[in-house]
Every structure is written in C-alpha cells, then in structure tokens.
Design a protein around this nucleic acid. Sequence first.
DNA 1: CTGAAAGCGCTTACAG
DNA 2: CTGAAAGCGCTTACAG
Lengths: 340, 340
Amino acid sequence: MKGRVTADDVAKKAGVSQSTVSRVLNNYPFIKEGTREKVLEAINELGFTRDEIARSLVEKKTRTIGLIIGNISNPFFAESAGVIISKAQKEKYDVIIYNTNHDDYQLEKAISTLIGKRVDGILAAAVNRNNARVKQLYENGFPIVLYNSRLDDSEVNSISLDNKKGAMLAVEHLAELGHKKIAYIAGPSKYLTVYERYVAYREALQKYGLSYDSELVFKEELTHDKVVTFTKRILSRPDRPSAIFAMSDEMALAVMDGVAGLGLKIPEDVSIIGFDNINIAANSYIGLTTISQQKEKMALLALDNLIQLIESDQKDVQPVHVIIEPELLIRRTTGVCNGS
Amino acid sequence: MKGRVTADDVAKKAGVSQSTVSRVLNNYPFIKEGTREKVLEAINELGFTRDEIARSLVEKKTRTIGLIIGNISNPFFAESAGVIISKAQKEKYDVIIYNTNHDDYQLEKAISTLIGKRVDGILAAAVNRNNARVKQLYENGFPIVLYNSRLDDSEVNSISLDNKKGAMLAVEHLAELGHKKIAYIAGPSKYLTVYERYVAYREALQKYGLSYDSELVFKEELTHDKVVTFTKRILSRPDRPSAIFAMSDEMALAVMDGVAGLGLKIPEDVSIIGFDNINIAANSYIGLTTISQQKEKMALLALDNLIQLIESDQKDVQPVHVIIEPELLIRRTTGVCNGS
DNA sequence: CTGAAAGCGCTTACAG
DNA sequence: CTGAAAGCGCTTACAG
C-alpha cells in the first residue's frame, strides 16, 4: 500500500546524500543553508514523513509510554488518564493505553505487549499488591511508576494516597453525624490501596465504638449492578444501615442508583460518601460527599516521575514514594442520622 | 540501560542460527521438534522478548492503531474508547490514544505523529467537518474511519448517527409535553454532527410552531462552567424556558448542575434532555432522558471496519457509511410543562 | 529442515 | 560541511 517515501527518495530529489537528509531532520547545526533549503523543499514536495519506527530501532527509544488502568469507563481512571495523555503530548510522548478490567491475566498480557513494543516506560494504576512481574521489571531498572496502586513490600515507585487516613476521615465524618450502622462497599482486597481502606474502615468503627457487621460489607467484584443489588438488599432489612461508604465514587454512584431505585431519600434516609472526587461528584445535582485523591496531582506526579526515570541515567535515581494527603469534601449526600 | 537480549543471543545459546530462532518465534511449521525445544528453552532462560519495533520495520505493519477523541473526560468518548480498546486487544492491536480537546491544531498534530509512528490505521471521533488532512489521508488509501464525526462532502468512511432524526426526536418529545420555550445547548458548529443537530432543532421548532429565540441557544465552546453559567442566566429571566435540550449528556449534566444550583426542580420546574446515553444517564438517581447513539455499537462498527480496511487489499474496498438509528429514552428528567 | 545474506528506514561515527 | 558505510533487531527469499 502506498509505497511510502523514504529519506533516500528525498536525498535523490535534493541531490544530496541520505545522511544529509537525516541531519536536517535532526536539526544538526552545521549544514550549509542552501543544502538545508534544498532538502526541506524536497521533503515538502514529496510529502515525506520520517519513519519513527526505524528511528526508534536505532535510537533505542520509542517516545511512547504504556498506561495501564483498571477500566476507562470509571471516571477516576478516565480523568486521570486524560491528564496524563495531555501532559505526555506536550512532552512529546505518545501513550498506549490498556484496560485490565481488573483481571490479573490481562495485566500480565498488557505488560508483555508493552515491553515487546519497547515503550520507554510504564504507568500503572491498577496492579494487584503481590504482582511479581511489576516488581521484577522495577528491579531490572525498567522505568515504571504506579499510581493509585502499591505493592506489598517492594520499593517500586508509586504515587498513592494515604488511604488509611482517607477511609478514616470518611467513617469519622459519618460517625460524627450520628450514624451507627455504616455499610461499606469494599471490593476485593487484591489491591493494596483497596485493602488499606477496608482496614481503616474497621479501625474507625472500633474507634467510635461501632460494631462491625460483615453483612454490611460488600467484598465481591465491583460491578455497578452487583452493588445496586447489594444496596437494595441491605436497605430492605428492618435494621437497615443509615449510611453507606463506598471505596470509589463510581461505586457511590451505584449505591445512589440503588437508593433512588428504592425510593429512599439522600441524605434524609441514607447518607452516602464516596472516594476519589471524580468530576461529577462536584455537580450540584449530585453533590457527592467524598474523599479527594487529588487525581490530577497524582497523575501528573506519576507522569513527571516516569519521564524523569526515562530521561535520567537510571543509576543514581532514588525510588519514588509519594504519599498524597486525602481531603474530606462535604457536600450534599451526607447528613445527620435520622434513624435509630 | 539493560542491554536487551536479542534473537542472536538466543541463537548462540541454542546453538542454531538466528533465522531458526525467528522461525520458531513465528511458528513456522517445518522445524525439527528438537530444534524448536532448544530454542524455546534458550528463550526462557534468557528471558527474551521479541523486539516488535524491529519486526514492524520489516513487516511494514505495527499492529497499533491511533484513536483520536475529543476529550476523554467526556464519558461518551471514554466509554466508546473503552469498547474500542478492549476489542482491539482481543484482535491483537494496541491503541495509541489522543485527546484533541476539540482543537484543530491538536488534531493535526495527533495525525502527524500517528502517521510518523506508522500506525496501521486511525479511528477518529472528533474531526471538524472540513478537515482537509483527513480527507487527503483517505484519498491516499490510508485506513481511516470516523465515528461520531463526518466530513462535509467526502467519502471518508464514517459511522454516525442520524443526527437530524435524533434531535428531532428530542424536540418533539419536549413539544408534546407542552413545552413552548425550549432552550438549546448547541456548541460550535465546526463538527458536522453537532451542526446537524442544531439544524434539526430549528426545523423541529418550526414544525411545532414554536418560535426560535437565539438568546436561548448556546453556541460557544462547550465547557462545563460556561454551560452552567448560561443555564443560570436563561433560567433567571422572567420568561424563562421550561425545557432545555443539550447536544450531549455531558452538557445536560452541566445544565442539571446549573438548575440545581438555582434550587429549581427537575422536571417540575424545568425539563432536561440530553444526547448520547452515557452510562450514568441510566442511573436511577439521575434518570436523564436522552437520545441514544448506541455508542458501543458505533464504536465496535468503527473498529471492525477499520480492521477490515487494514487487513484487506484496500483496492476492492467500498467506502463505509453506516448511519445508526437514534432512540429516544424517556427517563425522569422530562415531564409535562407546568409553566406558561 | 536450517543457515548465510539481504533488506526494512533510519542514525551516527569516521573520513575527507 | 557532507558522503559512504556500519549497524539497530528482526524477516524472508534463496540455497543447500
């Protein structure tokens, strides 16, 4: 198809060597002005575009990075990815994006493909706490930084929230509003960040002398429909909880879906608090009380650090471990407890 | 960094030639079983991963496609991109994603970079109606398909909605509920799809004998904040509109933000209808009445057609022009007109 | 069934 | 200031 025009074609047309064409392409300074002009002209006439694949092969860098997220339809991932994509563009990096759908096998496959494509580095926002592949990549000196994820006991670079504090803040807010029965949408604990929130939830309950009821905790796979069903089920109990804390705003929205489906009022009948502070949480119509992860800052820090790793000499680089401060944003979905 | 292991290293370790290593990598059938095993073993011990960049150079295909969208934080783009990314993975294509932020210059830059990186094809969801570059790419036989976009008078492959019908459906629904003053969040008409909706809005008004009031039409750049401000402004007029139609669900949400900010009720005080049917529109707490674009179907068709273009011989391929049928989904944000 | 060699389209010492 | 040549890591005829 199309027989692409190469630097050699340009060279012939301009009556110079291919090396010279390459030099003007790379803005090599010592070229006679006349020569440069001839080359530029030929490039234009021929509609030449330099083959970056060939260039990557010799330069041993592709100026593309891999971005691995859980699921792009979760606004937390979409919005943080947006920040990364835009900033990467400015820094002249392309991004290949992968959804894991929270499946370990898909994560492995994504990593393998990205390594095969020789990306300069990887940003990953959804890696299970014990992922050996990521650990190994890091130990081999491959540029990788995690955000919204962390490994169990490894030095792998990461930008993450103080999740424990975040979950504490959420439960405390509810407890101080007088809520005694606080349900929790926890999710599976293969992610360290998610697990930490769960632990903090339990600790916070204890701190406020509230009892832990495993029936009020959803630990299964986090799909919208399952959470809606769970919400409806626990709210149909005679001793229903008066507040529900969700480990993500996406899931808090699913809880709201369930609550509205039951005809219950928020926050009069049930208070809801999320986690992430996705854009829509601030919409006045929703007004979701939540814990901010400062996703833009998180994403930007992750990218900045990755680029630094890529462009530095690797040797003298210290592991990066940034902990971001959570912030409680009180909006309309939480209120004082009206029930028992 | 890391001195990657090459097929040549594998060859030496296995005591065969590099050609043989290449053959086992490519599942060439006529290899002695013993040889294959030796090679596989060497590959494992060395932790070899084939350099896809080098392979792309000789094969003249990269198995990556470019995906150009307006803005990933708009759920319509994020969700359709999600469908594309997942399906592409299954088909063994990677996707490089670009946000244009609805800026023509960024679109051009994205295309140039993608061409430079020798992607096998491009999917674009946000291209201005008169884009010469896209047209030229298509005419040169480069695999490109648009979705949610179309060019003015060009054959470029596209999957798009019957936008006119969609907007008609929306206004008719409102008119039949008795609304006389229907505002419209139109956006800039550089996109043909957006323009078509605007034209249909006017035609529908006419059909129902409703007058067109340019002050009730928002034609500026579509940002959340600007639409909130506009909404508040028109709803503060003594003769305020009783219904607002937005050209996207994202903007309908902005309208709801403005309405809620004013303390007005939906749909009692003002009915709202969107366009796209993003996932959250179906959430019972929101219940946004909208026009479905069948985004999953649209995205999948776009990808399928692109892959077909890439993998076929190009010559015998007819231009693809799929028009998707819009569907009115009535939910909670629209109701009969209570006002004058 | 397997090896030696050419070639994909660039960059970059090395000469001049 | 510029050209000839080697090399990046593969694939694929061509021989044998």
